[in-house]
């Protein structure tokens, strides 16, 4: 058997250690070892974005990241967005604007949008359509997802004002 590696990182604010083969993909570690099943597997070729997580401040497709690369990293998934029982504005926005249907792409969508709003707190529709284009949805046609992100942007900016 190949050498195993002990990898320590922060997942949604908590320290975790896993022992994995070098080839283990982050999405499998999250889902199979760490009971973090919010991120999903959709395409396995780095196209659909259902597996999107936030890794050290970057949105990444966790099907194309090796767990061994995550030593000392900070990983945020959909499970980490709700704080003290309060939904993140994006989670609220997706509900309010009917930005989801089957719900399969939703965790990746929201996690991606989370980073987008960190980088651009007031994105236009065009910005959102361009910077959310790494996440595929087959149900919604994206129109309400755009609205959901805008809802969150407005809520977050008015909370700061």
């Amino acid at each position: 058997m190949a050498n195993k590696h002990t990898v320590s990182f922060k997942l949604n604010g908590n320290d975790v250690d896993v022992v994995v083969e070098a080839r283990e993909l982050l999405i499998h570690t999250l889902r199979e070892r760490l009971a973090t099943t919010g991120p999903h597997i959709g395409c396995e070729t780095t196209h659909c974005g259902a597996c999107t997580v936030d890794l050290d401040g970057a949105s990444v497709k966790s099907c194309t990241v090796l767990t061994v690369q995550c030593q000392d990293a900070e990983v945020l998934t959909i499970e980490g967005l709700e704080q003290n029982g309060e939904l993140h504005a994006l989670q609220e926005g997706f509900t309010q604007e009917h930005g989801l249907q089957c719900g399969y792409c939703t965790p990746g969508m929201i996690t991606r949008a989370y980073r987008l709003l960190q980088e651009n707190p007031n994105p236009s529709e065009e910005d959102i359509r361009y910077w959310m284009a790494g996440n595929l949805c087959r149900c919604t046609g994206y129109q309400n997802i755009v609205k959901a992100v805008q809802f969150a942007a407005e809520k977050l900016s008015s909370a700061q004002a």
Binding site: T36, I41, E82, L87, E92, L100, G103
Partner: peptide
């Protein structure tokens, strides 16, 4: 939608 609460939290139960 009543369904949304679990999906926006990543708490759906899909096959995998």
């Amino acid at each position: 939608r009543k369904e949304d609460a679990r999906f926006i939290r990543g708490q759906g139960t899909f096959i995998d």
